[in-house]
Amino acid sequence: MIYNLLRPLLFSLDPELVHLCSLKVLSQPFFGYLSRALFSPLMEVKGLEKELWGIHFSNPIGLAAGFDKNGIGLQAWESLGFGFVEIGTVTPLPQTGNPKPRLTRLPQSEALWNSLGFPSEGAEKVSQRLRKFLMTKGKPRIAIGINIGKNRLTPLEEAAEDYKKCFSYFKDLADFFVVNVSSPNTVGLRSLQEKKRLELILEALNSINMVPKSPILVKIAPDIELRTIADILSVLIEKEAGGVVVANTMLAKGPWGHMGGISGRPLSKISTELIRFVKKKVLGVFQSLE
């Protein structure tokens, strides 16, 4: 009901402005108290708990990367009933992302199109914010993931070092990590899904992922060939990755003529079919090893 009342107002404003204002509201202390009062029943639903990688998830519904890129709304996500949150994408160095306009609604398709390009305050500042939050508020009941990426100006040949550097800032702060090699909004980034390049990234991360090891997942694109996905899965299994995230936004031309990514309802069928493919492929590999 609250959303139905606010929706016309929110949709009359620039979507990126609404995004930033929402985060500002979520970061205010009063919101934590208000949301706990309104949404506490969401946190009390039984039977949805999961134990994965030794991490407790109160429920399987999480906030994916992209909304809270800099960890600004950390105090809100548990109160709103999420089982986990994925902060990011965080880049090693601060960067502003792509030029505006870079975000638009597609109401008829129930979708969003964006070409944000990893706007990030940088790993140092975001990790300091997270560390301060954990020291003052304590460890939240929800799992915290960090989605990491490379800086726009970093050559593809040096990408592994960017992921390694970003990972090092959060090693003792996050519950799990997601390697973003599939965003369509950073030139060349999706080529990091190629087998050899992905191997280099995971090897670099494994070299500093000491005991206790953090789960490292890889986020894949929804619109690449199944053969390429099969190669990615073989690399993840070989390098003992924690899992795969299905999926990023789908490559599409936006209203201003440049390429970006679509999220929302258009991805529903594609991502569901992709999840089935990944599950079948991975189960087949492990069954063949028995």
Score class of each variant (00 low, 15 high):
G73F: 10
G242Q: 10
G264H: 07
C166M: 04
I220R: 02
D68S: 09
G62Y: 00
I216L: 12
L10K: 06
I216H: 02
W256V: 12
E225H: 13
S191M: 11
L17G: 04
V285R: 07
D162S: 07
W113Q: 15
E44S: 11
N209K: 10
S40A: 12
L5T: 09
I224V: 14
V245Q: 03
R36P: 00
N70W: 03
A252R: 15
L202A: 06
L5C: 10
A143L: 05
E16F: 13
P94G: 00
N151R: 05
P155R: 01
V85R: 03
I224S: 05
N114S: 14
R190D: 08
V18F: 10
F57Y: 07
K281M: 05
E78W: 04
L192P: 06
D172Q: 14
W256L: 11
L10A: 15
L13E: 08
K164Y: 11
A241K: 07
G81V: 04
L217N: 04
Q108H: 14
K137T: 07
I148H: 07
R197I: 05
V282I: 14
S35H: 02
M259C: 09
L20Y: 12
T249M: 13
E240C: 08
E121I: 03
Q287T: 04
L226H: 09
T186A: 10
L52Y: 03
K239T: 08
P101N: 12
